[in-house]
Amino acid sequence: MMKTSSLFYLILVLLLFSCRLNQDVETNIWESGSYRFSLSHDDLNREYLLYIPRNYDIEKNYALITVFHGGGGQAEATFENNNWAAFADEKDFIAVLPDGSREDMDRPASFANNAQTWNDGSGRSNIGAVERKVDDVGFINKMIGHLLDTIPNITKGVIATGFSNGASMTFRMARENPDLFEAVASVAGTDWMPDLIPASTPPRLLYITGTEDPLNPFNGGDIFLGNSYAGTKPDVEEMILKWRSLLNCENQFTTDTQMDIRTYEFDCLENNQLKMLALIDHGHHWPGSESLFPVSVVGENTTELDANEEIWEFFDI
C-alpha cells in the first residue's frame, strides 16, 4: 500500500503535469519542468511525459533517457516512485516516460480495471497490448523522432531503461531498432525475441534482476499473477548468454559476489559491453525505490543497490 505522503505527492505531481498536457510539441522554446504530450499513432492517441532538468541550458548538450513503466503502471507513478526528477536534475539529462496502451483509451489508466501494458513481443495473450497487437515499436520510434527534431541539443545519445513488462519492451526496441539506442538497461524483465531476429548492431546491455523474483524467476518457469497464468519465462542466465553472441563477447565470463550482488561481466569486442547484476534474495522491485505491492505477490525488497545510479554509471554519459 502506498504511504499517505507518497500518495499526496503523486496527486500533486499529476496536477502539475496536467497543466501542460496540451503544450505544442513543435515548440523550440524549452524551459525546465515537466510536460505531457499526446501523439497520434496507428489510430491511437498515445501519451508521454517529458522532463527537462532544473538547470537546462540551450547551449549545453544532453542525453535522452527513455523509461518504460512496468505492466499496469503509469508514467507519472514511475516518475515519482523512482525519483527521476531529482536524478535528472542531479545528472543533468532529459527524461521521457511514455505510457503503454490500455483497453479503453478514453478512460484513465487503472492497474485493476484498465491496465497499461506494452507489446513486448512475447506473444502472451494475457498482456493486453500483445493481444491487441499494438504497434508500440512504431509509437516509440515516432515519439523519439519528434523529440530529436524539436529539442536541438540531445547530442549525447539516446538510451533506454525499463522495468518488468517495460524491461521486455526495452529488449524489443534494442532488437528491432538497434541503431536508436546507444545502451539499454533492463530490470526484472525478459527478452522474448527469438534467436531468428538478431540485431545487427545491438546496443550495450546492463541487466538487473533479483534471484527471488516470483514474476521473473531466475531459473525460469511459469509465472502467475494471483491465480492467473502469466506465461513461462526462460532461465535468466540462458537469456543473457544470447546477448553474449549478439554483442560478440567471449564465451568465458567472470562472476563476483559482493554485498549480496552477484556480478557477471563479459569481455566483448568492438567496444561492446554486457553486464548482469543478480540481486541475491531480491524480489520484483525497482532497486532503490519504495515497494508498492505486497510481499506475497512480488517478494522481498532486500537490496541496497540504487538502480538509477548503477544505470547511469553503466551508460557512462
Rank of each mutant, 00 (worst) to 15 (best):
F315V: 08
R20T: 14
F218H: 08
S164L: 01
C249N: 01
R172S: 07
T190D: 03
Y56C: 05
S186D: 08
D195I: 12
V298W: 02
Q258R: 11
D43W: 09
E304I: 15
L44N: 06
S18M: 15
Q23N: 14
V295D: 10
L269R: 13
I52R: 01
N153P: 15
Q74I: 12
F315M: 11
S289D: 02
A160E: 04
S200W: 14
Y229K: 15
G71I: 07
L16N: 13
R244N: 06
V187E: 02
V295K: 13
G145K: 00
T150Y: 08
L196Q: 13
Y51A: 03
V137N: 02
N81T: 15
F163M: 13
H146V: 06
P214V: 09
N227E: 12
H285F: 10
V297I: 13
S18L: 15
F87Q: 00
S291E: 13
E176M: 12
N126L: 10
R172K: 13
L148H: 05
L277F: 07
L7V: 12
L147P: 03
A115P: 10
A95F: 01
H41E: 08
L241Y: 14
S296H: 13
G73W: 00
V158N: 00
E26S: 12
L180G: 04
L225Y: 09
D57N: 11
T201Q: 14
L206G: 04
N28Q: 12
R107G: 11
R124I: 05
Q116E: 15
G145S: 10
G71H: 02
S228V: 12
R204H: 05
L44I: 06
I223Y: 02
D149G: 11
H69M: 08
P287V: 10
G33E: 00
L97R: 02
Y35V: 01
N22V: 14
E265L: 13
W312K: 01
F93R: 03
D120P: 06
T117Q: 04
L15R: 08
K91M: 11
E290F: 07
I280S: 03
Y264P: 03
L50P: 06
